[in-house]
Design a protein around this nucleic acid. Sequence first.
DNA 1: CCCGTTTCTTGACTGAGTCCAGAAAGCAGG
DNA 2: CCTGCTTTCTGGACTCAGTCAAGAAACGGG
Lengths: 143, 143
Amino acid sequence: MVTAVDFQQMLRGAALRVTRPRLAVLNAVHAHPHADTDSIIAAVHRELPQVSRQAVYDSLHRLTTVGLVRLIQPSGSVARYEARVGDNHHHMVCRSCAVITDVDCAVGEAPCLTAFHDNGFSIDEAEVTYWGLCPDCFAAKSS
Amino acid sequence: MVTAVDFQQMLRGAALRVTRPRLAVLNAVHAHPHADTDSIIAAVHRELPQVSRQAVYDSLHRLTTVGLVRLIQPSGSVARYEARVGDNHHHMVCRSCAVITDVDCAVGEAPCLTAFHDNGFSIDEAEVTYWGLCPDCFAAKSS
DNA sequence: CCCGTTTCTTGACTGAGTCCAGAAAGCAGG
DNA sequence: CCTGCTTTCTGGACTCAGTCAAGAAACGGG
């Protein structure tokens, strides 16, 4: 369990000022993985009703650039955020209901994180998105 | 080289009517891989100045759903289209200049196309996006 | 060549996200 | 604990990609 004190230390560690909006945003992202910006704004408002939309956008951007949260944006989706950072995990997206599920790199670390030079590119990240049907939608389709 | 006749046959093969706007869109996507919608509209206008923006959007959607073009949408980018379809290739995106380059599946067919059941998901596609610096931006940064 | 259906045009509209100027709040140093 | 500098937040206007909808035009089977 991550506490408010942990969030404070995360912010200080990233040389960011500790503000109520940022704490609420961190909290919301940890509580709702893969949530879109509107959901995060709603969650923040439950805690601090007066926080502006713009403050949430700004917090998310800063937290993303310092690496405390991660932005994911599957094709056809609005921006979503998650708190699992620093590990090499990927996502499965349901084509039917758009639910997103975490997936640890299926093939060990080998092919998907290897930074390599190809075509002269200097690669630093390989992002994998799996597309298909989640259990519920798969069952619904089969029946 | 793909000719106008080929494009006609592609459309008929997909049970789509052959119209001038669609031919121009197909032509533009083949001529400008990874172009965004505005660039495609501009290219179409060079050929048929009176075609509406909406017709291009609609053509791209239909061509995408029948599989004649492929939509790619890297995080932070607007919709882009390409004509290479049906093969299992991926993309490298430059973090600095956003140029997109094709990449054949580096590890053969094995890990990235294998449809597998995991967490109950029924996966039908694995999309890989490599992030890094293109040769030019890498050289510019090093110097 | 005609008619029914699909597609295109035109123009208003939506919704995520950005920009900006002034007000408020964090956080060193005393 | 105050002071003052700096970063951050508020509020509101704005941008831009993409969508919606109604009527006009064009495709193509018969």
